[in-house]
Design a protein around this nucleic acid. Structure first.
Lengths: 133, 133
DNA sequence: CTCCCAGATGCGCAGGTACGCATATACTTG
DNA sequence: CAAGTATATGCGTACCTGCGCATCTGGGAG
């Protein structure tokens, strides 16, 4: 059982129908659900190792073993993190011989994370200036 | 407002500067640290209520009480979440009379989150199709 | 100074999450 | 079928996090 499957994530179906990319113009109730869903996605990015995994996968599909070695983490641990990313729909799997190859399902995700990193570095820069001067 | 992306470029060095040492390109170790920092920022976005707070603040600075009412949450709870956002540098405060006004320090953050939401809605869309056939 | 209002903070509990270990499953080869 | 390799999963533990309750702090009014 390698494929992707449904999981928790409640009945997001409602949300899907109504919204696609309208930034800030929703009903209050929907906003709550959408925020919850977004938070669900954010949880995928909530862990340093998962972020590392995502960046590793940005370079192309990889096997679990390869990823484990890249991160310097155990197979078990990496597998667990990948399971989370899989549940959240961030990565997809494909069997290749004895190995299972993971890949990013939404490469744009890297762009979003990079944007966060940009904000982060500006923030750190600012703190530096506070300390320095 | 979801516009810009594809920037980053060498922000890593700056980040490092804030941390400890020399201007090296990001090797494995640094990537780990950067991922950790990014995860720290992501933790700010990890909670539905905090996301809601951020979106509320996107409309302009607001007092704690106003935010609490908007979210339908208790003052204590909102204050706690705001404290987290403050620690992470996401929001700033300003005293105005008896109230304390919170505001977004990096409005671009909304753009990044919107990007995540875009990915999310695509993902949900995809799941719908799976169910629908 | 005293009272009140807007927020912040400490504490304790409940639920969630990461991790390692041992074990189960799927594919491959002999 | 047996053994080996590549991943996945269940369990127990230690830690982190969200939440409410009670309490403390700071500004403004009488």
């Amino acid at each position: 059982m390698v494929g992707q499957e449904g999981d928790d994530t409640a009945d997001a179906s409602d949300v899907v129908g109504g919204d696609a990319n309208a930034p800030v113009a929703l009903d209050d109730g929907l906003r709550g659900e959408l925020a919850e869903l977004t938070a669900t996605l954010c949880k995928a990015l909530n862990d340093p190792k998962r972020l590392l995994l995502i960046y590793a996968l940005a370079d192309g599909p990889r096997s679990v073993g390869a990823l484990a070695e890249t991160l310097g983490a155990s197979q078990t641990n990496v597998s667990q993190h990948l399971a989370i990313l899989r549940e959240r729909g961030v990565v997809g799997t494909e069997r290749r011989g004895p190995s299972i190859i993971y890949s990013l399902r939404y490469p744009e995700l890297i762009g979003a994370v990079d944007q966060l990193r940009g904000i982060l570095s500006r923030e750190l820069d600012r703190r530096q200036q506070l300390v320095a001067g």
